[in-house]
Design a protein around this nucleic acid. Structure first.
Lengths: 168, 168
DNA sequence: GTCAGTGCAAACTTTTTGCAACTAC
DNA sequence: GTAGTTGCAAAAAGTTTGCACTGAC
């Protein structure tokens, strides 16, 4: 069995249990969307998920249903929602361990980063009267690509100024 | 001098420097919006900021300009943007120390929390090739109020079921 | 058979953009 | 005077909602 499918199977069970407890209908759409989220393999957007389902092909679900279902999955604790400036990003939530992400303020790319050091510190962090479900650390800044891009543009600009000076 | 005004004065200077370096216009609107952000005293939204400026009265700025200016302030590193599910929240950025927030998944309230323990662990956290500007820890879960509210509703529901059973 | 859930389109909210008018330089 | 900014309104993008239809129970 594909190793990646294991957490997905667990999530599927949790979804079933969640819906049964609340007497909700176990529609094929809901399971299909969860499956597609598994195929996404990491962080994804609604658009991305729609594309995956279209390419995968076997099943068509409307955009509105995907939105509604994502909210259900969030409430059920099956996915994590990252409400970024551009569009909400999601990812499967296989455990409740603290997670860290880098977000580039220029290209808005979000990337999961592994920070075992920070994780340990955050693990036993509590807040009085607040029932913690998730700890998400967002590290904002400039990614490698954008740093390089900016350096190059600064160089170009510098050259233009030099040319201007030579012309005088 | 009002103690609270000190960081604001520093931010004003940084704004001036930022704009001068880029030959941007030091318009009264920009300084006025920064002042209003100081009056907000914590985390605020665009709507909240507009209201503050209306009540404060001396100056009127259009919504679009506030949005544009907030982006400028972000780029200048004067404010932190929290792109939440409901609407973006902002706050003045007086230093680059790691910050933590609790966000209730039910009422969407965001609150700054002091976590000296986590701060220390996050302080010396680095990512290869990534130029870190801010570290924001979001702690998702249920706030005290919503927990109480949910408990109360569960109790009410339980009573209804009991009544149903008695009727039979 | 019933009603929760879906699909579609339309509404809604937040944010961005185009353009004329303005004003800081 | 000129070009960067503002204000307004209109557009865009993302998300939510209303309603008729469908299918899970």
């Amino acid at each position: 069995m594909d190793k990646k499918q294991e957490p997905l199977a667990s999530l599927r069970e949790r979804l079933t249990r969640y819906m049964e407890e609340r007497a909700m209908r176990k529609t094929p759409e809901r399971y299909e969307i969860l499956r597609a989220a598994g195929l996404a393999n990491g962080i994804f957007t609604i658009d991305g998920l729609m594309k995956i389902m279209q390419e995968d092909g076997t099943f068509q679900v409307s955009r509105a249903t995907v939105f509604n279902t994502m909210e259900l999955f969030c409430d059920a604790g099956l996915i994590i929602k990252h409400p970024l400036a551009t569009a909400a990003h999601y990812e499967l939530r296989t455990d409740s361990a603290p997670k860290a992400y880098s977000i580039c303020r220029q290209c808005n790319t979000i990337t999961r980063v592994s920070t075992s050091t920070a994780k340990l510190a955050l693990q036993n962090l509590h807040i009085r009267y607040f029932n913690i479900e998730d700890k998400l650390l967002y590290i904002h800044g400039l990614c490698r690509k954008c740093q390089a891009k900016n350096r190059q543009e600064a160089r170009k600009k510098q050259n233009t100024i030099k040319q201007d000076n030579n012309r005088k």
